[in-house]
Design a binder for these strands. Structure first.
Lengths: 224, 224
DNA sequence: AATCACGGTTGATCTGCATCAACGCACGGA
DNA sequence: TCCGTGCGTTGATGCAGATCAACCGTGATT
């Protein structure tokens, strides 16, 4: 079922692998394999030593951290084409978060050692990794600013708006991950998320079909 | 006044420049220079194209982002030996935050183009940059977890505890930046910060001299 | 010395979101 | 078919921290 060709096709389009170049990419893919995992499967746990670099091919992966006695949060969500936790692999340090499949997923598994060796050999791959981490850093900065300055409703609106881009401009948004995961990613409880959805709908910034499909009439009106 | 030898001595000790190796380091330092700036001087503004990579030699630099109609926050604080915003320099993208001197500072200015050229030439520097960004990403993850799961008081306690490490184990902590900057970095108002300080002092986790010096009797008791 | 501006502290009040609780609905298994 | 069980929603209440306001010590200006 997991055809190598499909995996190759998807990641060929990703910014990261384009920057890495075909030679390094081939070196990475040769000893790698894909895997299909059901919802709520765990890719790795906080504290594990990284054995693989995971690339999401289909579905969503959530990165969750927990603090003793304070529960868990979702630090980041990864969609198709994204690399989970290159940081830990690069640093050879234990993961500081747990990765969990939020939907059924297909992931490409690149052995960590292969990735590190190839980075040491390929200038392009090293540079691509630097840029990848730089982009990821900026995403985290965005999230910090969101948490510190914006209300729960605004955070949800911006979260959805970012998804509109990924789709055709049509305005139908895919939110395949469970509500609790979205709530945790946005730093609020499921209850608050539910109310925020209702409020955005009331204001006409959003429509929800009976099948659960979410439609955005006007992306510009969403982002405040 | 700014002696090149002192600058060299300081950054030689930093993890980043050690990993980069002496050759790349020399290439970086040759066309660079140091600058002394007063408190509240602006190093660069949100939206600027990066011309220099800034390395803090003395004092503290704050990275602040602002959202229209919501005010500003402090995304990160940088102390001696730290590189500000390598991400934007690497990506050749406009800064998404403003950098401001929070105390009088001495900074090393490395021309952005020189940094990019040297990265392309030196495998070690590229690798060091990758690791630097990986570490910075992890710091931001920590901050997100803090904001989502911990109370204002806990965030302050952990912030101070991290400073204890940097000093001799003695327990006297340097907090040279203005209270408002610390408050913004921790995602709270100056009023709440003040109350958190008072509460930690009341619990005996902290002592404050009349000169404003902050002393931590027991670092382990601070982190909850 | 008087004035002002500024940074930090303290007090009173307000509010956004968490928490606790109940409910509806879809789905799966006996 | 009936009865769980899990997930999302809605309602009522509580609280951490924001906001508004006053105050105080310090240093700069005149």
């Amino acid at each position: 079922m997991p055809q190598p060709s499909r995996a190759t096709a998807l990641i060929e389009r990703s910014v990261f692998f384009q920057a890495a170049g075909p030679a390094a990419m081939a070196d990475l893919l040769r000893p790698s394999f894909t895997q299909i995992l059901p919802r709520s499967a765990v890719l790795f746990e906080e504290g594990d030593e990284p054995d693989f670099l995971h690339v999401v091919l289909e579905g969503r992966v959530g990165l969750q951290a927990c603090v003793a006695g304070r529960g868990r949060t979702m630090v980041e969500l990864f969609g198709p084409g994204e690399l989970c936790l290159a940081a830990a692999v690069v640093l050879r340090l234990p993961y500081l978060a747990t990765a969990m499949a939020l939907t059924e997923i297909r992931v490409l598994m690149i052995p960590a050692e292969v990735f590190r060796e190839t980075i040491a050999r390929s200038r392009e791959l090293c540079h691509a990794t630097t840029e990848l981490l730089a982009r990821h850093w900026r995403l985290m900065v965005d999230q910090v600013v969101d948490l510190k300055l914006r209300s729960a409703e605004d955070r949800l609106a911006r979260f959805i708006a970012r998804r509109v881009d990924e789709e055709t401009g049509a305005g139908v948004v895919e939110l395949p991950e469970p509500r609790a995961a979205i709530a945790a990613r946005l730093g609020m409880t499921p209850e608050t998320l539910s109310r925020a959805f209702a409020e955005l709908e009331r204001k006409g910034k959003l429509r929800r079909g009976p099948d659960g499909a979410t439609t955005v009439p006007d992306r510009a009106a969403l982002i405040p």
